[in-house]
Simulated scan of single mutants.
Amino acid sequence: MGGFIFMIGLVQGSYWTHRRIWIQEENGKVMMAGHTNKNWYAFNVKWLKWQKRQSSNSRSIGQKTNK
């Protein structure tokens, strides 16, 4: 039984990535940070795609659009 539990932990630690993202809003500005323990390149690619998408849709908080 102990060996089985050990193998589950080994699989989790070896194959699954752990990602953390922090978001903080202060004075109408949003600050973001992220961290991963593995596969930082894939995390960076996704981060840059998200950042590009957000910058194309960004506007100041409280600013109204005429659509």
Score class of each variant (00 low, 15 high):
residue 1 M to L: 03
residue 1 M to N: 13
residue 2 G to M: 05
residue 2 G to H: 08
residue 3 G to Q: 15
residue 3 G to H: 08
residue 4 F to S: 09
residue 5 I to L: 13
residue 5 I to A: 11
residue 5 I to H: 06
residue 5 I to E: 00
residue 6 F to L: 06
residue 6 F to P: 06
residue 7 M to S: 15
residue 8 I to E: 11
residue 8 I to K: 12
residue 8 I to D: 01
residue 9 G to A: 10
residue 10 L to R: 15
residue 10 L to V: 11
residue 10 L to A: 12
residue 11 V to D: 11
residue 12 Q to N: 13
residue 12 Q to S: 08
residue 12 Q to G: 08
residue 12 Q to P: 00
residue 13 G to F: 04
residue 13 G to V: 01
residue 14 S to E: 07
residue 14 S to A: 04
residue 15 Y to K: 04
residue 15 Y to N: 04
residue 15 Y to G: 00
residue 16 W to M: 05
residue 16 W to K: 11
residue 16 W to N: 09
residue 16 W to F: 11
residue 18 H to P: 00
residue 18 H to M: 07
residue 18 H to I: 02
residue 18 H to E: 05
residue 20 R to P: 01
residue 20 R to L: 10
residue 22 W to P: 00
residue 22 W to F: 12
residue 24 Q to W: 06
residue 24 Q to H: 09
residue 24 Q to L: 10
residue 24 Q to D: 15
residue 24 Q to S: 08
residue 25 E to H: 00
residue 26 E to F: 05
residue 27 N to G: 07
residue 28 G to P: 04
residue 28 G to Y: 04
residue 28 G to T: 05
residue 28 G to K: 03
residue 29 K to D: 08
residue 29 K to P: 00
residue 30 V to L: 14
residue 30 V to D: 03
residue 30 V to S: 13
residue 30 V to H: 04
residue 30 V to C: 05
residue 31 M to V: 08
residue 31 M to T: 14
residue 31 M to S: 12
residue 32 M to H: 06
residue 34 G to N: 00
residue 34 G to R: 00
residue 34 G to T: 03
residue 35 H to E: 10
residue 35 H to N: 11
residue 36 T to L: 01
residue 37 N to A: 07
residue 37 N to Q: 03
residue 37 N to L: 02
residue 39 N to V: 02
residue 40 W to C: 01
residue 40 W to P: 00
residue 42 A to G: 13
residue 44 N to Y: 12
residue 44 N to K: 11
residue 45 V to L: 13
residue 45 V to Y: 11
residue 45 V to E: 12
residue 45 V to S: 13
residue 45 V to D: 07
residue 46 K to V: 03
residue 47 W to Q: 00
residue 48 L to G: 04
residue 48 L to R: 12
residue 49 K to N: 15
residue 49 K to D: 12
residue 50 W to M: 14
residue 50 W to D: 10
residue 52 K to L: 12
residue 52 K to T: 13
residue 53 R to I: 09
residue 53 R to Q: 12
residue 53 R to V: 09
residue 54 Q to S: 08
residue 54 Q to N: 08
residue 54 Q to H: 06
residue 54 Q to L: 15
residue 54 Q to P: 04
residue 55 S to M: 07
residue 55 S to Q: 13
residue 56 S to D: 12
residue 56 S to L: 10
residue 58 S to L: 02
residue 59 R to E: 08
residue 59 R to A: 08
residue 59 R to D: 01
residue 60 S to C: 09
residue 60 S to E: 05
residue 60 S to G: 11
residue 60 S to W: 01
residue 61 I to T: 08
residue 61 I to H: 04
residue 61 I to S: 04
residue 61 I to C: 02
residue 62 G to T: 03
residue 62 G to I: 01
residue 62 G to K: 04
residue 63 Q to D: 14
residue 63 Q to G: 07
residue 64 K to P: 00
residue 64 K to E: 13
residue 64 K to W: 03
residue 64 K to T: 10
residue 65 T to Y: 06
residue 67 K to H: 02
